[in-house]
């Protein structure tokens, strides 16, 4: 989870791909982005957690498709013409891992100045604090910088075992 620490370099700007998820803007580190795809046929994995409920074919590779909206407790409307799939490569427990993330909309690539990034507030947020690395600002908008290492890491949401209710519902 090396990318976690980069944030603390005081004046480094972060180049990020901004994507929309249910009206919120999220920033994904541009370096980790491999490609952006239109929606392709998604294979559901029965009884898998909703967060990583699908598989897609990315150039002959079977790649898990994650839905960050589940982690952030958002509504999950079906894909529309704006929906994109962002394929990212992140390091999890020292292993480079390729996975795809569903985005309601892909905005642009932007620089987020480190000085404008604040720590996730302890109150006023219904998301789990450890999943948010920081909140950046651009104009009047807030940009949420998710902590991919934690979200997908062993101790994050992806590593947690599910209760049987969740699994069978």
């Amino acid at each position: 989870m090396t990318e976690v620490n980069d944030m603390h370099d005081a004046d480094a700007a972060m180049k990020a791909l901004t994507v929309g998820l249910q009206g919120e803007i999220f920033a994904i580190e541009a370096e980790s982005v491999r490609e952006i795809l239109d929606v392709v046929p998604i294979t559901e994995v029965p009884n898998a957690r909703a967060f990583v409920g699908g598989l897609i074919n990315v150039r002959g590779r079977v790649v898990p498709l994650a839905d960050l909206r589940v982690m952030f407790g958002m509504d999950r409307p079906p894909p529309n013409t704006d929906t994109r799939i962002v394929v990212i490569e992140i390091e999890l427990d020292g292993e480079p891992t390729i996975l795809a993330v569903l985005a309601d909309k892909v905005h642009d690539v932007t620089d987020i100045e480190a000085v404008s990034v604040e720590e996730a507030p302890k109150v006023g947020m219904r998301w789990r604090q450890e999943f948010v690395r920081g909140i950046g600002k651009r104009g009047d908008d807030f940009i949420i910088i998710p902590d991919m290492g934690r979200i997908f890491g062993e101790n994050g949401g992806a590593g947690q075992a599910l209760t049987s209710e969740e699994r069978f519902d």
Binding site: V40, P41, T43, V45, P46, N47, A48, R49, V52, L55, I56, N57, G60, V62, V63, P64, A66, L92, T97, L99, F152, A158, A161, L162
Partner: peptide, 23 residues
């Protein structure tokens, strides 16, 4: 991937002729 390690009913996935993934 590790994200589906808990789903034991599948031993893997494959890519079908039409490009979709089958378990």
């Amino acid at each position: 991937s590790r994200f589906h390690a808990d789903v034991e009913t599948f031993s893997g996935a494959t890519i079908l002729g039409d490009g979709t993934v089958a378990l």
